[in-house]
């Protein structure tokens, strides 16, 4: 479980997150939704200790993110950030291989190499593995970064808008892979999504942020109501149940 208690964050005096207390359940797919600038990426980067936590506390399975050694956390939690700007010139396989670093610290063994190839297969990168990152398309690049986080093989996986640049089939495959991963291996996945029907279809749990405030946090079915969506995004929607699946619709 990820435990957030009274987390606040400011940048240059501007309040980015105010007093967020919430639990994110273990072994589930949690969707983090909210308008642009709501503070979703900031919250994820605080959980993943990419930014210093100033107020409040965050723990992951009782490991405090501030005091736990960074390399121990790296075997517990992986993050894919929203903008991945790596300036080094790397091949796709080399990038994915870096995901194993927390486990082998520079000396990959047989198991690490297997896991790297598996990640490459899982995200259809087989044909691209020997290309440089600046020689592949935006979506292919995105997949490589997701594969890197996947290869890290941590109990907790934080993904900030992983569907960016992905085509319809790739996006669906990724979401399917992630839900299977959570169901089969008990991994906890937190994923920032903008397409609300992906949240409706694949997430068990939904957390809603708006202007740095926590609007709602609970099981997907309870959160996806016309009221909460209107409060968060300011648009009118209807919620439908089709073949046992939830569908959020809006009318132009």
């Amino acid at each position: 479980m990820i435990r957030l208690s009274s987390v606040s964050h400011q940048i240059d005096g501007a309040k980015i997150l105010s007093n967020i207390s919430a639990n994110i359940p273990k072994g589930q797919v949690t969707a983090l939704i909210g308008p642009n600038g709501a503070g979703k990426s900031t919250l994820l980067s605080l959980i993943a200790r990419l930014q210093g936590l100033e107020q409040g506390s965050i723990s992951i399975d009782d490991l405090d993110v501030v005091t736990t050694p960074s390399d121990e956390l790296a075997r517990k939690l992986a993050i894919l950030t929203q903008s991945n700007s790596i300036t080094a010139r790397l091949r796709v396989r080399e990038l994915v291989a870096f995901g194993r670093f927390p486990h082998h610290k520079g000396r990959p063994n047989h198991k690490d190499l297997e896991r790297i190839e598996e990640a490459i297969e899982q995200f259809d990168l087989g044909d691209l593995a020997d290309k440089f990152l600046d020689e592949v398309s935006g979506g292919q690049r995105q997949k490589a970064f997701v594969a890197m986080a996947y290869a890290q093989d941590t109990d907790y996986l934080l993904l900030d808008e992983p569907l960016n640049n992905l085509d319809m089939a790739s996006a669906r495959n990724l979401m399917r892979n992630l839900t299977e991963l959570a169901a089969q291996t008990g991994k906890t996945i937190v994923i920032v999504l903008h397409e609300i029907n992906y949240a409706a279809l694949y997430a068990n749990w939904i957390m809603v942020l708006k202007q740095g405030q926590l609007i709602a946090n609970g099981p997907a079915k309870e959160i996806l109501t016309p009221q909460i969506i209107a409060d968060t995004f300011g648009i009118e929607v209807t919620i439908h149940e089709i073949d046992g699946k939830t569908l959020v619709m809006h009318y132009g």
Partner: peptide, 22 residues
């Protein structure tokens, strides 16, 4: 530190994610 240097070259965020006390 030779192996950690390879990771540090990826920048602060990636290095931190991979467990480097940056």
């Amino acid at each position: 530190y030779r192996h950690e240097l390879d990771v540090i070259a990826l920048g602060k965020e990636t290095a931190t994610n991979l467990g480097i006390p940056y």
